[in-house]
Design a binder for these strands. Sequence first.
DNA 1: TATTAAACCGCATAAAACTGCAATTAATGT
DNA 2: ACATTAATTGCAGTTTTATGCGGTTTAATA
Lengths: 249, 249
Amino acid sequence: MLKEERQQTILNEVELHNRILLTDIAETLDVSIDTVRRDVKELDADKKLKKVHGGAISLGFTTNNIRNAHIYALEEKTAIAKKAIGMLRNGSVVFIDGGTTCLELARLIPEHLQLTCFTISLQVAMELSNKPNVTTIIIGGQITKESQIAIGANAIHALSEIKVDYSFIGTGYVDAVYGLTEFDWDIVQMKKAVIKASKKTVLLSISEKLNSQHRYKTCDINTINTMITELDPENVLLRPFKNLDIKIV
Amino acid sequence: MLKEERQQTILNEVELHNRILLTDIAETLDVSIDTVRRDVKELDADKKLKKVHGGAISLGFTTNNIRNAHIYALEEKTAIAKKAIGMLRNGSVVFIDGGTTCLELARLIPEHLQLTCFTISLQVAMELSNKPNVTTIIIGGQITKESQIAIGANAIHALSEIKVDYSFIGTGYVDAVYGLTEFDWDIVQMKKAVIKASKKTVLLSISEKLNSQHRYKTCDINTINTMITELDPENVLLRPFKNLDIKIV
DNA sequence: TATTAAACCGCATAAAACTGCAATTAATGT
DNA sequence: ACATTAATTGCAGTTTTATGCGGTTTAATA
């Protein structure tokens, strides 16, 4: 691997995660820690990032909100969120799922857009409540400790009484054959209820999750009406999904 | 975790709460108190915050006038919250209202305490979900933009189906004669529903709110079972409440 | 004034950064 | 194609930094 490629990779990682550890980078790039150190030193001299003890942080780190700092693959998720926002119209009634991609979607909703948003995520609800023209409704239920979303029979019942134009959902794993799958049984039940409660379902997924599966199944892939990734629709990774009845953005 | 991340987290906490305790930060960040002290010292040297005995305060907090400082009245609210926590037992099922005093209560719940907590506040729910032994349930409903709590017919209906041991509620205004009053009609409806849903109602109120009233009435003063203020029970301000059937802490 | 909690100080330890050097690889000239 | 030179990389040893801990001093509080 060329030095320049390596440095570019380091830069990308920093931009993506807002921070990196030298030890992590050395491992993923399979070079010695000293090499990474020298690379980071150069990049720091070129004002491309800020070198700190033990790692490096992006230049905008201190000005950015910390909440952005720990989102993995922020760039990709922002790209996805922007595409999703293009689907929204004044007066739309939508559901927004939990997860960082959907959180990013909530954040990027423009001020002028008039929406009614349902959600099960505390964080998404908080973001939405800052938007002057968005009516936010949270679905009640027991809050999970990991992802801070409402789950349980009560939440599912509440969802059974609504019908939104679009639901924007994330998933743990997605595969053209196995469909949408999750690690967690409760989450699957919630997502099923969400899909039932929506006229059209939009899946937001970074390419990393494509062609992977896990234990519990949410739905078949053709239950999804639109799939949004950060990739170009012609990308080879999306080929397995091409001949299905899904719009790929 | 990188030092810079840690310091950024500290800064965010300070901005959020206006004031932090070094012990709290040390615990949440899982580092020694000395490390936090050194971090805060550096941040103070960089004029990012002001270091005080036992913690740090945001720069804006000191430059703001007394009125602003008083709005938060963190000292008082912390004192109230601590008294309220004394009422909690393992296995208690409680409701926690919105507002800064109740938020403080949620924050100060000790790690070991096993509770089931209902709330209508996004912020309270978020705090609670960080507690390992607390089961958090959020009541669904439309989120208000100012206080980020769930309101509406749906929320009221959800409350009508539960009965908690204690509800800890705040109020806009409280008076021995006029009872609990609010500026906002919707809030009154919510509080009424909360009181109905609880075996015992505990009012948390800083002394500033004593002997004041407003347009809409939540309930009579003797509907409240316990009133907690930061004052000593013998304080002259509490005299009007003395001969009523209320426990004053 | 006594008591408690926080701040401070110095030290020990572990991790990271630096240094010089040898080995390897890439680039260049003949 | 081959030799020479320059650049890059990894390694061992050293220096620096970050962090936690015990003991002491100082500040807050009752």
